[in-house]
Every structure is written in C-alpha cells, then in structure tokens.
Nucleic acid binder design. Sequence first.
DNA 1: CATGAATGAGGATTCATTCAT
DNA 2: TATGAATGAATCCTCATTCAT
Lengths: 208, 208, 208, 208
Amino acid sequence: MPREVRERQMLDAAVAVFARRGYRAASMDEIAELAGASKPLVYLYLNSKEDLFSACIRREAEALIAAVRAAVDPGAPADRRLWNGLRGFFAHTAAHPDGWAVLHCQARTHGEPFALEVGALRQQLVDVVTQLITETAADGGCTAPLPETEVAGLAHALVGAAESLAGWSNERDGAASSEQETAATLMNFAWTGLENMAHGRRWIPIGA
Amino acid sequence: MPREVRERQMLDAAVAVFARRGYRAASMDEIAELAGASKPLVYLYLNSKEDLFSACIRREAEALIAAVRAAVDPGAPADRRLWNGLRGFFAHTAAHPDGWAVLHCQARTHGEPFALEVGALRQQLVDVVTQLITETAADGGCTAPLPETEVAGLAHALVGAAESLAGWSNERDGAASSEQETAATLMNFAWTGLENMAHGRRWIPIGA
Amino acid sequence: MPREVRERQMLDAAVAVFARRGYRAASMDEIAELAGASKPLVYLYLNSKEDLFSACIRREAEALIAAVRAAVDPGAPADRRLWNGLRGFFAHTAAHPDGWAVLHCQARTHGEPFALEVGALRQQLVDVVTQLITETAADGGCTAPLPETEVAGLAHALVGAAESLAGWSNERDGAASSEQETAATLMNFAWTGLENMAHGRRWIPIGA
Amino acid sequence: MPREVRERQMLDAAVAVFARRGYRAASMDEIAELAGASKPLVYLYLNSKEDLFSACIRREAEALIAAVRAAVDPGAPADRRLWNGLRGFFAHTAAHPDGWAVLHCQARTHGEPFALEVGALRQQLVDVVTQLITETAADGGCTAPLPETEVAGLAHALVGAAESLAGWSNERDGAASSEQETAATLMNFAWTGLENMAHGRRWIPIGA
DNA sequence: CATGAATGAGGATTCATTCAT
DNA sequence: TATGAATGAATCCTCATTCAT
C-alpha cells in the first residue's frame, strides 16, 4: 500500500480518536489499530504523537479554510459573501464533525504548540470576517467609521457565534436543511446589527 | 488547619492546574503541591481526580451564574438587563480566567460526566438569554413573533459570541476598562440585530 | 467506656474484617469503623496491624482449644472422648465462623509471625488427637503397636478431615443438628479405621 | 524470546511469589523481576494481577487433576484406584509445593473470582472420591447402602485428610519415599473405615 | 478517654516510544 | 515496507501510622 494512502488512513483514524477521547486520553495503540497499521509504522510516518496531532490540526484547518474560501464568490457583494461564507462554514463543520471537534474543542486546550497552530486558523477566519465587516460598512454607506478594535471585537463575536451555532446545530441533528437555517439565523442576527452600527445607530446605556 | 479552608485551597489549586494543563495532563501531584498539602489529604477530602474536577466545575459554574444573576437588576427593562448581564459575565470571566478556562475549554472535552455538568451551566446561561430575547421582542413592540427554534439559535449565537469575546478580551489584557468596552461592542451588535428581527426586518438571500 | 469492653469490640470487629477480606486487604479504617472507635484508639490499645492480627489469632485459638477441652470428659473412655471432642470442635467452628476462617484460612497464609502462632494451635489439636489415638489403641486391645510417625500422620489426617468437614458443613447451612451428623460421620469413618489398624488389619497394595 | 516461553516463565514466577507472599502482598514488581521481564510485558501478556492469579490457579489446578487422573488405572478395582489416586496426589503436591500452596492456602481466601475457580478444582477431587467410595461399597458387598449426604461428607473428610497430610509431609521433607508412606497411612485409615461403614458396622454413641 | 488532621511509602496500571528482524 | 517484542517513566490511588489537642 502506497505511503500516501496509508498516511491518510492514519490521519483519519487519529482525527476520529482525538475527537472522541481528547489529546491526552487518545492512545497511539487505538489510533494504530483503527488505522489498520502497526504502531511502528505510525511512528515511521508521523514521528510522534505530538507531530501526529499537529498534522491533524493542520489538515483539518486547511480543509475548513478551503471550504469557506471556496464557498465565497469573490465578485459578489459583501452581504452575499458573508452569507455564503457562513453557509460554507456550517456545511463543512456539519460534514466533518470529528475534524471540527479536534479544532474547536481539543486543540486549544493542550498547551502552546497546538494552541498556536489552531490560533492561526482562527485568525484566518477572523481576518476574512474582519474584511467582510469593513466592506459591509463601506457598501452600506457607512456614516460612522468603526474603530479598529471594535471591528476586531465584532469579528470575534461573529466567529464565536458561528462556532457556537455549529455545535448546537450538530447536536440537534434535525433536518438536512438545518445548516441552511442556521446560517440564515446568524445572518439575520448579524447583518442588521452590523448595518445599524455602520450608520452610527447604537444602543447607549442610559445614564452611562 | 480547618478542613473548609484546606478544601478551598485545594479547589483553587486544582482549577489553576486544570486550566493550565487540561484534565488528563493535570497530575494530582502538581495539584497537591500547589495546594500546599499532601496527596493523600487531597484524596481524603475530594475522593478522586474525577470528583475533584467535578467539584471545580460546579464551584466555578455556580460562581459564574451567581455573578451574572447578581449583575442583573430584575426590575429593569430588558435592554438594561441584557447589558448588565453581559457586563457581569465579562467582568467575572476576566477576574477568574482559570475558572473560565476550565468551564469553557476543559470541561466539555472530557467525557460524559463533566460535559453534562458544564452543559447544565451553559443551559442556564442560554435560558437567561432566551428569556431576555423574548422580552426584548415584547418590549420593543414585536410585530413578527420569532419562531421558537430561531430564538434558541439566537440565544446560542449570543452566548457563543460572549464566550468568544471573553477569551479574546482576556488575551489582550489591555486596559482595565476593556470589559466595559467588550460588553458595549457585543451589546451594540446584538441589540439592534434583535430589534430588527423583532420587527420583521430581515436579510433575505437574493434569489433564494 | 472501660478499656476491656472497647478492646473486645475491637477484636470482634477485627476478626470479622480479617475473615471477610484477608489480612492484607483488611484496612484499619474499616476495622476501627466497625468497632465504633477512632483509629488512634485502636493503635493505642493494640499497637499495630500485626499485633492486632496476632491478638485475634490468639483469642480465637484459645477459645477453640478451650471449647474442645471443655467438651471432653476426662474420665470417659477414649471413644467417647474423641466423639465429644469432635462435637465440641464442630459446634464451636459452626458458632464462630469468622474466628474459624481467620484461623484456618487467613492465618497460615501470611508469613512467619502468624503461621507460627496458628501452627501452635494446630499442634495442640494434633497433640490431643495423638493422645486419643494412642489410648484408643490401648483400650481396644492393640495387638500391633503403631509406629510413632504413623500415629502422627493419622492425627494430621483426622484434624484435616475435621477441618474440611467444618468448612463443608458451614457452607450447607442446613439443619441445626447438622453439626451432630457431621461429627457422627467423621466418627464412624475414623473410629473403625483406627480400630482395625490397632489390630494390624491393614490394606496392603497387591504386589507392592 | 517467543511469547509462549515468556508466558510460562511469568506464570512460574507468579506461582512462586503468590505462594510465598499471598495474593495481596505479592507485588507485580517482584513477579516481573523474578520472571526476568519488565512489568509492562507482564501486563501485556496477562492483563492484570487478577487475571494472572486466575491463570496460576487454572494451570496448577489442571496439572494436579491431570496428575491424579494419570495415576489412576481406570480398569483396576476400586481399592487400587483409590490407592493410586492418593499416591498421585501426594507425589504431585510434593513435587509442586508452590502450586499446592497457591491452590490450598491462597486461592480460597481471596474473594469470589478465585474461590470459585479453586472450588471447581476441589469439587472435581471430591467427585472422583465420591465415585470411588460408592464403588468401594459395591465392590465390598455393601449390605447397608450409605445415604447420599453421608457419602458426600466422607468424600470431603477424605480430601481434607489428604490435603492436611500433603502439607504435613511437605513440611517434614524427610525421606524421598515419604509420599509412599503418607499414602499408605491414609489408605489404611480410610479403607477399613469405609469397608466397615459399607457393612453397617458403625460406632454408636452410648446412650444417644 | 478520644479524635480530626495529616503523610511517607508503595502498588497496580498505562503509555509513548524503540529495536531487531 | 512492515512488525512482534520490549520498556522507562509516570499516574492514580491506598494504607498503616502519628501528632496536637
């Protein structure tokens, strides 16, 4: 069996096991067995548990980013790009729950090396969203330019909302179209909020 | 030293170590040492690593919920209650980053017993937010009642956004007032979005 | 509470726990709890686990020997003395199963100090039986004096048979009179065998 | 080194250590060291201390039963079969004192799982003896059929006597031929007793 | 007389990792 | 390319035992 195929099988197995057990509780034995290979072979191809986990993160992160990028039509207006990006995000996380679990739940909780790796992914998502927010403001005829910090905050909020919704809609594995609905809910919530902010319509704490 | 004091020291140490290392990677040795007690005493008071982790989750969850509840003035209108709840949330998570890390990052990733425990906390947050959203719609003169599923989705989105922002604002531990700003950002984002939705103003995908 | 009473309670508890769990698996915690006293008190009165176990063995051994001795009427002929001794033995072991378990099952399996102690008990039983066998031979008009080694072997065989029957009759906790029957069975088995041997009637392996 | 060989070495070591120390006091460290292997290997091959002990019991029990069976010539008359069975029993226990110690002293004292296993062995011995007693009665022209309970009692008594003698003759590890003598002593004791009982000649307590 | 608080030492078990083949 | 055999190092947990009160 060619190395490339074997390696993919190993990564598949590793993602599944890491998702189910967590990094520390996952055992190389279980991964090797699920991959249908012997442990020494796993070490030959992937060096160590740490490297293996890194490889999982990288592969899944790239796949997610690629899915989101592919969903966005660069020529469309900002609102459609946000809408399509969200749909792509929800569709991919729904289709690859193990990969998503590794990225969202496991990677960040296990020390520097992995947190950095997954942090880079998150930053990419945030960057995409930041740009969309900025463009949205411009497209919508922004009358009150948003300070940079606030844009960053909004981007983080949006990504967090998306992540949370991804988990929620995965749990209630309802209709096949639920990912569409989930995206719509978030879009409704976010879009009008953004538009208002871009026009300086804000909520102001009374007396603050 | 009286038992109560020792027990609190142990929980403090455990929360710190669990936050830094994760459940599996945390060693009872390190926790005991940090608590300034011997391992057998930790076991005598808290039974097992699992029970200790559960106790951490419970304590931190109760503290967080209490902080949010305490921040909300039950007599105030819905928007102020949301605002105050958010401020309480951000203030508490900023003041107790380890506790928040245990709840948000660690607890959900380590098997049923803990996931259930922390799931209960999250549900409480979601419940509070759900109620606020509903009342907001009413207060704002809702013209288009939101379907129940959508309200749930919005609540999850809002909680996710808050969780994400909590992590973000903890990372850039800049100004002391940043928790105020963070709350304001989210409030602006969420409030206007909710208001619009409550009045049936929605974003509609063109051609969908 | 006077020391004597407390000490007896402790020994009672220890015998029960040692019988149920074995020496190593028995914990001083469990013993202290069952005795209704605190652990330091147990140590104050009985020094150590080893001493406690020794005390159990000694007490139970002395009780058993005393019971057998009390059952035997020194003036009776040899057969009646054997008969009464057996009845006393079975009655006592049936009435004190925990003590018997400690003596028979636990004490011998845990290293020199205890094995010696319980060995002494067993030797006393064997001595009594040895004497009975010798007298039986004399009473029955022995025509072929038995060599010393053989008498010792017979005594061990008889004690072993009695021990085995004690366990067996304890298991099938049938009629209240079963100890009587058990004694009768062994008596029938042993007595005629002894009588024959004393008269030189032996089983000889053909061709050996 | 092939697995089979290693596994046997481990069982040998385990039997020796369990015999010397008892189940609880035996440490896997000592067993592994005596076996000349590392602890993880012991666990890899034999799973756990409990399984290891079970494996010891099973191996030793099977060996003992096989030795007794092999010693008995199925075509011989009942008395010769009893005689040969006893010789086989004493020869095997004398040749494998550790195995016998594990079976007789240790296995019964350590909780259900092992007690059952060793109980099965004992039952097999008792069954063999029970059948011999019954046949003996028949061969000897039984005039007074023995009640079933009594036969069972006799069988237990005989096995107990044999067990006791095995221990005794092991202790005074005197002449090489002592196992022959031991068997002869027991045979003399038992055989004539059985014959008498089969003919209704009983010892009757005067006045009972 | 009685105990709550505390621990040093040790034991079962697991796991990432490496050779020799 | 592929693996059966093997282990050092750690981890959870328990227990007999002792003080200070």
